[in-house]
Design a protein around this nucleic acid. Structure first.
Length: 687
RNA sequence: GGGCCCGUAGCUCAGCGGUUAGAGCAGGGGACUCAUAAUCCCUUGGUCGGUGGUUCGAAUCCUCCCGGGCCUACCA
C-alpha cells in the first residue's frame, strides 16, 4: 500500500465556552479516523485550534474584567485538557489569535483583493452604546412587532414565525448589556462569491468531496440562484485582526477561523521541520475537515472559495456529522443532560463514550442519540462481556507457558477475521464506525463460542493435556489480539494494555494478519470495569446544577471594601503547625482517587466505608470519618485526594488503607472534601 | 414558507428488487463454571408507518398521506 499524506482537522471550538459531550462527538470521531490512518501506516497530521475572535469574546472578557488574551488562554488550556482526557489529542492545537494566522489572513486577503472580488457597501446595524459595539441580529432581543411575543431575537419570531429586521423590534434590548441599541451605519467589505459560482457548483456537485445529502442541500439552497455577497468585515471595536488595507475594519470571525486550520498547520510544520506548502499546496496531500452540520456552508462555499482564490489546495473531503441528543432530546441544563466534558471525565471512563459513539456513528449527517440505558448495556455486554472477557478467560492458563510456537488449527477463525480486516478498514475509512463495530463484535462472538466449545477449564485439570490447553488459549488470545487491533482507533488504551499483556505493542493494522506465537504472556489485569448505573446517575446529578458561567471561571476578584473577603477566625482557632522540610512533605504520597463504592457503616457514628480507585485495578479500602457531612450514595464517582501510602490500620469494622483529605473547621463540624480541579485523573500525584 | 433526513421485533439497528425479513440487547427455558454473576445452546416476538402505483416479484423503486427529527427564511 502506498503511503498517503493526510491532513485532518476538527472544527475550531469557540473560546467562549467549555466543551460538552456534544462537542466531544466531533473530536472523538476525528480521532477515530486519525488513529485509523496512522495505524494503517499513513502520514497523517491532525490539527485543531481555538476560535478566538468576535464580539462575544470581547463582551465576555469585558464582563469578567480581564483582557481577551487572558480569557482565550485559559479556555485553550481547558479545551486541550478536555480533549486529552478523551484520548483525542491533536498533533497541534493552535489559536486563531496567533501571528501565523494573521500572516495567512493577510496573504489570502491580498489574493482575494487582487482577484477583484472585494466590494464596499454601507450596512446599517444596531449598535450597543453601553458595550460600544455593533450587534448581530441574534444579539438583539425584543418584542415581536407582529404577534407581540416577548424576548424574541432580532431576525425572526419563534412564536409566529414572522421575519423582520432587528430595527423593527418593539422595545429592543442588547442581549449583552440590556441597553437599548441605536441604529448606525457603517461601511463593510464584501466578497463577491457569485463570481466563483461555476467553480463552486462544480466542486460541490462532483460527488467526491461532500456527502450526497450535503451536495443536494447546497444545490437546492444556494446554488440555484446567484450567491449573495459575503460580508467579511466588522467595524471597530472588534476583537480580531484589523484589515491592513482598510483601517478601522476587522475581519469577521468566520473569515479568519478556517484559516486557523492553516495557521495551526504552520505551527506544526515549524516545530517538525516540515514545509507548509507540502501540506496546503500539494496534489499529493489529502485534506479532510470534520465539522458539524451547523457550519456546513462556511466550509463548503466560503472556504473553498477562499482557498481557490488564493491558490491553495481544496479540501479532499468535508465530513459532516449531526448533533448529539441525550435521551432523544436536546441537551438540557435543567435535566442534567447538558454534560460538560470535564464532568463526564470526573465520573466515567472516556473509553465508554468513545465506544458508544463508534457504535452509533455512520457516514451520514444524522443526529446521534445518547441513550443512557443503552450506553450502559452496550459497554457492559459488548466491551466487558464479550471482548475483554476473551482475554480474561484464557490468559491465565498460559501465563506460565506463553503462546504456542505454531499456530494451531482453529477451524479458520483467525483467517476469517484477518480477511475481514479489509471490510472493517473500509468502514473506518468511510467513517462508518458503527458498521465496523458490528463486524468486530461478530468476531468476538465467534471467539467466545470457540472457547466455550474447547473448554480450556476442563483441559487445565489434566496435566497430560497441557499442550492442547496451550493451543486453545493461543487461539483465544490471538483472536482477542485481532479484535484489539481493529478496535485500536477507538480504544487506544485497550490496545496498549493488550500489547503489554502479550509482550508486543500494537503498532500497525496489519498485525491482525499474522498470529503472535511463542511469546510469553503477562499476568492478566482488568482492562475495563463495567459501568455502574450509579456512576451515570451521579454524572447527571452533577450536571444539573444550573451553570450559567459555562464561560470561563472568573478571576477571583475580592469584593469591594475589604482587603480580604475571608475571616481570620479559622487560622486563629487552629494555628499553623511547625515548619516542615520538603522531604518531610514528600513522604506523604497524596493521590487523586475516585470513589468507586461507598457504604454506610451502620454501627459506626462517624465512618463511611469507601473503596477508592487509583486507576487501573488499584483499589484502596478506606474508612473515612465523614458520615456527618456526606451520604454514601452521593460520594460514588467523585474524585477526591487521598493519602495513598499511609500504613494500614486495623479498625473495629475492618482495615483502613488510607485517608481522604478534607477541610475541617469549627471544631470538626464543618467538613468539606477536597476535590481536584478538572484535568485530574485517578492516580495523579498531588504535590 | 422552503429544504433535508428518518419511520423494520419491547429497545438500538442491519438488510435497500429475488427463496419462509436478520443481528445485538431485553424477555422465557436450559447448560457450563475458565472469566469482571462473564459465556454457550435453545426459544418467544415483526401484516418492514399508511395508501396507491411500477414489476413475474417490493421492506427494498415511484405518488400521496401520517408521524418524528433537523436545517433554513436577505450581514448565509
Amino acid at each position: 500500500m502506498t503511503q498517503r499524506r493526510i491532513l485532518v482537522t476538527s472544527a475550531l471550538p469557540y473560546a467562549n465556552y467549555q466543551l460538552h459531550i456534544g462537542n466531544m462527538l466531533e473530536h472523538i470521531q476525528t480521532n477515530f479516523w486519525v488513529r485509523f490512518q496512522k495505524l494503517r501506516g499513513h502520514k497523517c497530521v491532525s490539527l485543531c485550534a481555538d476560535d478566538t475572535h468576535g464580539t462575544a469574546i470581547m463582551i465576555s472578557a469585558q464582563q469578567q474584567g480581564i483582557r481577551e488574551e487572558e480569557l482565550i488562554a485559559r479556555m485553550q488550556k481547558a479545551h486541550i485538557d478536555d480533549i486529552a482526557g478523551f484520548d483525542a489529542e491533536y498533533d497541534n492545537f493552535g489559536s486563531t489569535n496567533s501571528p501565523e494566522n494573521r500572516a495567512l489572513c493577510q496573504e489570502i486577503w491580498a489574493a482575494i483583493r487582487k482577484a477583484g472580488l472585494v466590494v464596499e457597501k454601507e450596512v446599517t446595524q444596531l449598535f450597543d452604546p453601553k458595550a460600544g459595539t455593533f450587534l448581530a441580529d441574534r444579539q438583539v432581543k425584543g418584542t415581536c412587532p407582529k404577534c407581540g411575543a416577548r424576548d424574541q431575537y432580532g431576525d425572526n419570531c419563534d412564536k409566529c414565525g414572522a421575519t423582520y429586521s432587528p430595527a423593527d423590534l418593539v422595545d429592543p434590548k442588547s442581549a449583552f448589556t440590556g441597553a437599548t441599541p441605536e441604529v448606525r451605519g457603517a461601511v463593510h467589505l464584501f466578497i463577491q462569491i457569485e463570481r466563483l459560482h461555476r467553480f463552486l457548483a462544480e466542486w460541490t456537485q462532483s460527488g467526491e468531496h461532500l456527502q450526497p445529502e450535503v451536495a443536494n442541500y447546497l444545490a437546492g439552497h444556494f446554488l440555484h440562484e446567484p450567491l449573495r455577497d459575503w460580508d467579511v468585515s466588522r467595524p471597530a471595536p472588534y476583537f480580531g485582526f484589523e484589515i491592513p488595507d482598510s483601517p478601522g475594519n476587522y475581519w469577521y470571525v468566520w473569515f479568519d477561523a478556517p484559516i486557523g486550520y492553516m495557521a495551526s498547520t504552520r505551527q506544526w510544520c515549524d516545530a517538525h521541520g516540515e514545509a507548509f506548502d507540502d501540506w496546503w499546496r500539494s496534489e499529493a496531500t489529502e485534506i479532510h475537515h470534520f465539522i458539524g452540520k451547523d457550519i456546513t456552508y462556511f466550509h463548503t462555499l466560503f472556504w473553498p472559495a477562499m482557498l481557490h482564490s488564493a491558490g491553495f489546495s481544496l479540501p479532499t473531503k468535508v465530513h459532516i456529522h449531526g448533533f448529539l441528543t441525550v435521551g432523544g432530546e436536546k441537551m438540557s441544563k435543567s435535566k442534567g443532560t447538558f454534560i460538560r466534558a470535564a464532568t463526564y471525565l470526573e465520573h466515567l471512563d472516556p473509553a465508554y463514550l468513545r465506544y458508544y459513539y463508534a457504535s452509533k456513528l455512520g457516514p451520514r449527517v444524522d443526529d446521534l442519540d445518547l441513550n443512557l440505558d443503552e450506553f450502559i448495556t452496550k459497554i457492559n455486554s459488548d466491551l466487558v462481556g464479550k471482548v475483554v472477557n476473551l482475554a480474561s478467560r484464557t490468559a491465565k492458563f498460559v501465563e506460565k507457558t506463553g503462546l504456542a510456537a505454531e499456530y494451531p488449527d482453529d477451524g479458520g477463525l483467525f483467517a476469517q477475521a484477518a480477511d475481514e480486516g479489509q471490510t472493517i478498514a473500509e468502514a473506518y475509512e468511510q467513517c462508518d464506525t458503527n458498521r465496523a463495530m458490528r463486524q468486530i463484535m461478530a468476531i468476538a462472538d465467534r471467539a467466545n463460542q470457540y472457547v466455550e466449545h474447547a473448554q480450556p477449564w476442563v483441559l487445565a485439570k489434566d496435566p497430560a493435556k497441557a499442550r492442547q490447553l496451550q493451543d486453545i488459549c493461543t487461539v483465544g488470545l490471538n483472536l482477542f489480539r485481532q479484535i484489539a487491533v481493529y478496535l485500536a482507533p477507538v480504544l487506544p488504551r485497550m490496545a496498549r494494555q493488550t500489547g503489554e499483556l502479550l509482550g508486543r505493542p500494537i503498532s500497525h493494522w496489519d498485525e491482525a494478519q499474522t498470529p503472535l506465537l511463542g511469546t510469553p504472556v503477562g499476568r492478566f489485569q482488568h482492562m475495563m470495569t463495567r459501568v455502574d448505573k450509579k456512576q451515570v446517575d451521579a454524572m447527571i446529578e452533577a450536571s444539573k446544577q444550573p451553570d450559567e458561567s459555562a464561560a470561563v471561571v472568573p478571576a477571583g476578584q475580592p469584593e469591594q471594601g475589604s482587603s480580604s473577603i475571608d475571616s481570620d477566625q479559622p487560622l486563629a482557632d487552629v494555628p499553623l503547625a511547625p515548619m516542615c522540610s520538603f522531604d518531610d512533605f514528600q513522604k506523604v504520597d497524596l493521590r487523586v482517587a475516585r470513589i468507586v463504592a461507598a457504604e454506610d457503616v451502620p454501627e459506626a457514628n462517624k465512618l463511611v466505608h469507601l473503596t477508592l480507585s487509583l486507576g487501573g485495578d488499584k483499589r484502596l479500602n478506606v474508612f473515612a470519618g465523614i458520615k456527618s457531612a456526606y451520604k454514601p450514595e452521593d460520594l460514588v464517582g467523585r474524585l477526591v485526594v487521598c493519602v495513598a501510602n499511609l500504613a494500614p490500620r486495623k479498625m473495629k469494622f475492618g482495615t483502613s488503607e488510607g485517608m481522604i483529605v478534607a477541610a475541617v473547621g469549627e471544631g470538626g463540624k464543618s467538613l468539606s472534601l477536597v476535590a481536584p480541579d478538572q484535568g485530574a485523573r485517578p492516580g495523579h500525584r498531588v504535590q
